Amino acid sequence: MTHSARDLLRTTTAALAPDPEANPLVPRIAAGTAPRATLAALALEQTWVIPADRRAFEHLAVRSAAADPEAAAFFTALAQGEALAGEHLAAFTRASSSERASYEPLPGCQAYPAYVAWLALNAAPADVVLALTANFSAWGGYCATIATALREHYGFTDEACAFFDFFAEPSPDLDRLATAAVQAALDAGRLDEKRARTYGRLLQTYEAMFWDALSATP
């Protein structure tokens, strides 16, 4: 693998990295001051996000299978990861909330998966690979912080924290697949870096909306 794809992934991730002080909720969870009702809302919002993202990634894998097999492999791995994350999420949801049937999702939290679905329908798959990979870096850091806080301040079990542990762990295989997909697109001249950064910027903005909306829950 040549170095250019890795460079592009690294520089794009750095350029789109959110201000670490901008997230209003994760520091409160880290300090143990976020109410348990907010943790319940986090779990219940994710019960909408995870299956939606899984289906979007499956659609992207199908769209790219013939012309862009490297991107298809990346999206297939993402979809499989979302399926596993959904299994872990069930334990966190059971531990934090008993109101799933009556819960009404927040628009600010569901803007992110709605945009991922838009990308699945409209964007060039290679551009989505770059945008998503840049976005995942911040999400993984948030999950690592939350996993620690749930154990230290809220008494959650390892089983209940497994959802956040899953996303907090680096994935060398996913990094390899992303690098291969970006490199193939660069070699074929079908990667629009400017558009991919626009997609990444919007993903980061919608993720910020997710945390803002949760932070405002009573």
Rank of each mutant, 00 (worst) to 15 (best):
residue 195 R to N: 10
residue 181 A to D: 01
residue 217 T to S: 05
residue 161 C to I: 03
residue 169 E to T: 15
residue 94 R to C: 07
residue 45 E to W: 00
residue 98 S to W: 01
residue 207 E to W: 04
residue 172 P to N: 12
residue 161 C to V: 08
residue 198 T to E: 10
residue 214 L to F: 03
residue 114 A to F: 00
residue 137 S to M: 12
residue 215 S to Y: 02
residue 200 G to Y: 03
residue 104 E to H: 10
residue 173 D to R: 15
residue 132 L to E: 10
residue 7 D to E: 14
residue 115 Y to F: 11
residue 177 L to D: 05
residue 124 A to T: 07
residue 73 A to D: 14
residue 50 I to R: 11
residue 170 P to Y: 06
residue 2 T to K: 14
residue 100 R to D: 10
residue 213 A to L: 01
residue 85 A to D: 06
residue 60 L to F: 00
residue 199 Y to F: 14
residue 120 A to N: 09
residue 86 G to Q: 07
residue 73 A to T: 12
residue 41 A to Q: 09
residue 39 L to K: 05
residue 164 F to C: 08
residue 124 A to D: 06
residue 124 A to S: 09
residue 63 R to H: 01
residue 69 P to K: 04
residue 94 R to F: 07
residue 83 A to H: 15
residue 177 L to C: 06
residue 20 P to A: 13
residue 198 T to K: 13
residue 211 W to H: 12
residue 33 T to F: 00
residue 47 T to G: 03
residue 134 A to W: 00
residue 217 T to R: 10
residue 10 R to G: 12
residue 116 V to K: 06
residue 37 A to P: 00
residue 16 L to N: 15
residue 176 R to A: 15
residue 118 W to D: 14
residue 19 D to C: 11
residue 85 A to H: 12
residue 217 T to D: 01
residue 120 A to T: 07
residue 152 E to P: 03
residue 212 D to C: 03
residue 86 G to F: 03
residue 9 L to K: 15
residue 16 L to I: 09
residue 205 T to C: 06
residue 9 L to C: 13
residue 198 T to W: 02
residue 150 L to G: 12
residue 214 L to W: 02
residue 17 A to K: 07
